Simulated scan of single mutants.
Amino acid sequence: MATSHFVHILYSEKHHRHYVGMSRDVNSRLKSHNEGKVTSTKPYIPWKVVHVEAHTSISQARSREKYLKSAAGRRWRKNNLKM
């Protein structure tokens, strides 16, 4: 089965903020964020992709996204993503 779902972490250098999301097309999603089409991220433009993980199912991707948004996931981001 082909990879079809991606979990991505975006970072706003200007505001020192992360955003964890899931998409089938990371580049298109990044463009939406940077064009201000996503309400929750609009105040923190510009964004850049700092991490992408490929998953073969939407349920795997959703589980990983949920983990990365948890306290343990924030610790993982702090330890593994050097900003």
Rank of each mutant, 00 (worst) to 15 (best):
R17L: 13
S12D: 07
L10K: 14
R24E: 13
Y19S: 12
H15S: 15
K48A: 03
A71G: 02
H16S: 15
H5M: 02
L10V: 11
N34S: 09
F6S: 15
I9T: 14
W76A: 10
K31Q: 06
K69A: 08
H18A: 03
S4D: 07
L30M: 11
H18E: 04
H33Q: 09
S57Y: 07
S28V: 07
Y11T: 12
L30I: 04
R17N: 07
M1Y: 03
Y19F: 08
S63G: 03
A54L: 00
H15K: 13
K37H: 14
Y44C: 14
T39G: 11
E35P: 03
N80W: 09
N34R: 09
S4F: 03
K78I: 08
I45W: 10
K48M: 06
S59K: 04
A61C: 05
H51Q: 14
T3F: 03
G73F: 00
E65L: 06
S59E: 06
D25G: 11
S28C: 02
Q60R: 04
Q60L: 03
R75N: 12
K14R: 15
H8L: 15
A72F: 01
R74W: 00
S40V: 14
A72T: 03
P43A: 15
I58P: 00
S4L: 12
I9K: 09
L68Q: 10
N27I: 01
H16P: 03
W76H: 13
A61S: 09
V38D: 04
S32N: 13
H15P: 08
